[in-house]
Design a protein around this nucleic acid. Structure first.
Lengths: 340, 340
DNA sequence: AAATTTTTGATGCACGTGCCTCAAAATGTG
DNA sequence: CACATTTTGAGGCACGTGCATCAAAAATTT
């Protein structure tokens, strides 16, 4: 019930507390033999450094920054809200959280922002930005300077270990599985609406979607992805066209994380009223849409979990601990009107 | 970026650190006027006690006990596994977790067990047991002795504030919604299999199930609940009978948290092979069953979340903090083979 | 006003770790 | 061997809070 302390360690290893300190904090000028002795004692006693006491001694405080895109609709607001909540919840652990807005389409400015952060005043950053060489480099240099970094929701291929977000392939496959099972018709076409197919996230969702549809529902065909580019007029035009030209549409998959515009347009078209429609992310809008039937199902990643997981990961990296993968795995959630 | 300390508080309130200490820890012999002064300063500075430092000073360690039923199959094992994991993950916070097995059907022995716990060596208990007057009383006395307590998965009506578990009504409703949508037939009967309808959990699931089925799928009828009482032979007999006598069964809802026995029996009956089947809880068995199609869907409460939520709640109570409800809300998860 | 009680202040140690200084011991070099 | 260099030890202060003790001040009673 009592954890061994550095004092116990010193006694067990037959060295002084000063030497234990040197080994624990990786300082210079200790003979390999002594290092080994201490490490052996650590193992034998099952010593775990008391981080609370260490932080107290160092007056350490954590400041974590969430770098989020400047543009975005409700889902982004949800994230910001949960970051504010987390700030409160983690206050007892001496953790501060901040939001910084970055221009997602300007890798140069993102890199510049990351370069401006010093480990003096920022312990870690959660970055939501599409991958690009500049950003990847900036993240790398950030880590070299001793600032923890995790990709947040948007993935950076190079650092998949500490990634915080869902498996987008699984998300797409889940959407397909539900669409397939919800559609009563024997055969037909599925309309797929995305914001853009440039991002890895969209591509992976589409891959997962097609794979599952082909495997489990071969009588359903997915139409080519419509890209709205976040432009409302364009969205209206291409969606209306697609509906007019494809009378055999029996289901709709809104792949983008902001479902508001597409769903609003769809509910204005009488042809799509009774079609099975699936969207992404829980927001005030999608909640309402689930209730009144404009959406039949929502595939979501829990915004609160995302934020808290990012915080825990950043803290673990800062503390030089390993994270428990299992605990930090973000689930692909399925929302119906019954389980909100 | 720097939190105010008790020193700052003392200065701001115009009193000594000793008096601040008396007020913060509710000791006797302080004039009301002085108490008010200190409280005003707390508010003004936004003072938050540094729990890490306090625990260090008190050499406080947390020991939490999970009181789980003695009998149970895979789901219980999952819980135990996650408790072991949590033990590791929370070690940095000086938290120890233990499992104690109780006889769920003997309220007297449960009460005796709870009575044996003293706040000296146990900080809190998560209790998984059906409600009964004896247990309720024992929990009450436990709390009076300064031991935190939360109902765990099985609910205790009287203390719904700190309850850790899912909304079973919503779980039942979700099962109904999915069964309804997954069944391609126009009309038919749904078989419902439970371990026992004595527990509140089962009753609430059934209530939610019937409500949603009646509301959204009026052409489907739910048959009376079959109760297996955890007896394999009995289960085989009543399930087989029910299938023989109801050729119009088109879906099956296995309501109990241990789906193994019923599903095994069902897959031995040719009549039920292609029927839509929904079960509860993620276990090695249900995962396999999802993959090979014996189960179409699983409604689950995340065992890891349950455990960690219980630990955080118990810690918050012990620290005399309020918990963030939002964060601790356990979701009704929907699992398909695509989102495991 | 004196005696008593209540309230407050001053001070110091403890918790486990980080970090510093200075001296002592061990090791290596010519 | 003497000397320089590397490695280790001893000790102490700091972090923010809890918990003592003892004396001083203030309020209350007689």
């Amino acid at each position: 019930m009592m954890r061994p302390t550095t004092k116990d360690l010193a006694k067990a290893a037959g060295v002084s507390r000063a030497t234990v300190d040197r080994v624990l904090n990786g300082r210079e000028g200790v003979k390999q033999k002594t290092v080994d002795k201490v490490n052996a004692a650590i193992k034998e006693l099952g010593f775990v450094r008391n981080i609370q006491a260490a932080n107290l001694a160092k007056s350490k405080r954590y400041r974590f920054v969430f770098a989020l895109p400047r543009s975005g609709d409700e889902f982004l607001q949800e994230l910001v809200r949960h970051i504010k909540d987390a700030e409160e919840a983690f206050a007892v652990d001496q953790i501060w959280c901040d939001v910084a807005r970055i221009d997602e389409n300007d890798p140069h400015s993102i890199a510049a922002f990351l370069a401006s952060l010093s480990s003096e005043d920022v312990s870690g950053v959660a970055i939501m930005a599409p991958e690009s060489p500049q950003v990847r480099d900036a993240i790398f240099r950030l880590q070299e300077r001793g600032v923890a970094a995790v990709p947040f929701i948007s993935d950076q291929t190079t650092m998949d270990t500490d990634w915080v977000g869902i498996d987008n392939r699984a998300a797409g496959a889940t959407a397909a599985a539900l669409l397939g099972r919800f559609c009563k018709a024997e055969a037909g076409a599925i309309m797929v609406i995305a914001e853009s197919m440039q991002s890895r996230d969209s591509l992976e969702r589409r891959l997962g979607f097609d794979a599952e549809l082909g495997k489990s529902f071969p009588t359903l065909t997915a139409l080519p992805s419509l890209e709205t580019y976040g432009d409302e007029e364009r969205a209206e035009e291409i969606i209306t066209n697609m509906v007019k030209n494809n009378p055999d549409i029996i289901g709709i998959y809104v792949m983008s994380s902001e479902a508001r515009v597409p769903v609003r347009i769809l509910s204005g078209l009488p042809e799509t009223e009774k079609l099975v429609t699936i969207g992404h992310e829980r927001t005030p809008f999608t909640e309402r849409a689930l209730h009144d039937g404009r959406l039949d199902c929502v595939i979501a990643q829990n915004a609160g979990h995302l934020v808290r997981s990012a915080v825990r990961k950043l803290k673990a990296i800062t503390d030089q601990r390993s994270t428990h993968r299992q605990q930090e795995h973000i689930r692909v959630e399925i929302l119906l009107s019954t389980n909100l």
